[in-house]
């Protein structure tokens, strides 16, 4: 196996892993090559193992050896699910702007209740996520005081570095939007549309980076059994809010599709059109996937938090 192929294969691993084990793995493969022991399976084996390490680094999978780690991984999976849900929720929020003006007041009962339910559950879910993070702060403080900061510095710095231009871009976009008409904001002004897309991508990148930072920190700090139980309960509550929001969103969508299909199709009032716009379909798929991930994470954390070995 030549050096270029080997280096490309090693890119399957996260950088931190490569820095620690990359040379050793490369040396092992070189030795296997010298002994004519390389087979076609080596490539897929490394790519799969590297992908797994990346998922582990993100806290998305955990084949850790202790129940404490598995329970933590379950909670982290719920955090990732929440992040995914937020993306879906933002799309729904954007797609549903001014829906009330498109539907006769006599038909607003069900969609209004569904929409308010989504908003209330979103607020509750957000508070729960913040509370779940806040509960770990004393453990984080202990970890940092014990010299752990270098282990998470890269992840936190990257998130902070992404957030600064994102906030600046967001503020700039809001100021710009105030000088535009509704039509211009909704696609007539192509420069605004492009800027909106860039800021939206930056927001997504910041969200992912902070979730990665939270996962990196959570993996390093110690959780007592009591704290894990509380975190598992919070994770279950967050998952419940995601479930409620998914159901309420589908209910709102169905009600609007029945009362004012032209709103979903983006066509003039009274006309017909598809009630399955791609943006809402994408958002609903994201919300559904996130909810399922949340259920899986909650189940995993509760199953492992009961094991006796976790310190009290």
């Amino acid at each position: 196996m030549n050096g270029v192929v080997l280096r490309a294969l090693l890119c399957a691993y996260p950088r931190a892993w490569r820095e620690r084990y990359g040379d050793e793995l490369a040396a092992l493969i070189a030795q296997m090559g010298d002994e004519q022991r390389l087979t076609w399976r080596i490539g897929p084996n490394i790519i799969l193992a590297g992908g797994r390490e990346r998922l582990r680094a993100l806290g998305l999978v955990g084949d850790r050896l202790t129940p404490e780690d598995r329970a933590k991984d379950g909670c982290l999976l719920v955090l990732w699910a929440w992040m995914l849900f937020v993306v879906g929720g933002v799309i729904v929020q954007k797609s549903s702007e001014h829906w009330q003006s498109a539907i006769p007041a006599s038909h607003q009962g069900l969609p209004a209740v569904a929409f308010q339910t989504v908003a209330a559950a979103a607020a509750l879910g957000g508070v729960l996520v913040v509370a779940g993070i806040a509960l770990t702060l004393s453990s984080v403080r202990v970890f940092v005081r014990a010299g752990g900061w270098p282990m998470v510095r890269r992840a936190v710095s990257r998130a902070a570095a992404l957030t600064v231009p994102t906030v600046a871009g967001g503020v700039g976009l809001i100021l710009w939007a105030h000088r535009l008409t509704t039509a211009q904001r909704n696609g007539l002004d192509h420069r605004y549309l492009a800027a909106f897309g860039v800021v939206a991508l930056m927001m997504l990148a910041s969200l992912v980076a902070w979730t990665m930072a939270a996962a990196a920190i959570a993996r390093q700090i110690g959780f007592t059994r009591r704290l894990l139980r509380v975190e598992a309960t919070v994770a279950a509550a967050v998952t419940a809010t995601m479930t409620v929001m998914t159901i309420a969103t589908v209910a709102w969508w169905s009600a609007v599709a029945h009362a004012a299909p032209w709103f979903l199709a983006g066509t003039p009032p009274g006309s017909s059109g598809s009630v399955l716009p791609p943006d809402l379909a994408t958002a609903a798929a994201l919300m559904l996937i996130a909810t399922m991930l949340g259920v899986a994470g909650t189940r995993n954390s509760f199953r492992n938090v009961r094991v006796e070995r976790i310190p009290t």
Binding site: Y21, L25, L28, N45, I46, A49, E53, L65
Partner: peptide, 18 residues
Amino acid sequence: LGPGTLYGAIGRLEERGL
């Protein structure tokens, strides 16, 4: 064992102090 499998397991064992 594949080399990726081996070093994946080594990493986890080392992480756990085993």
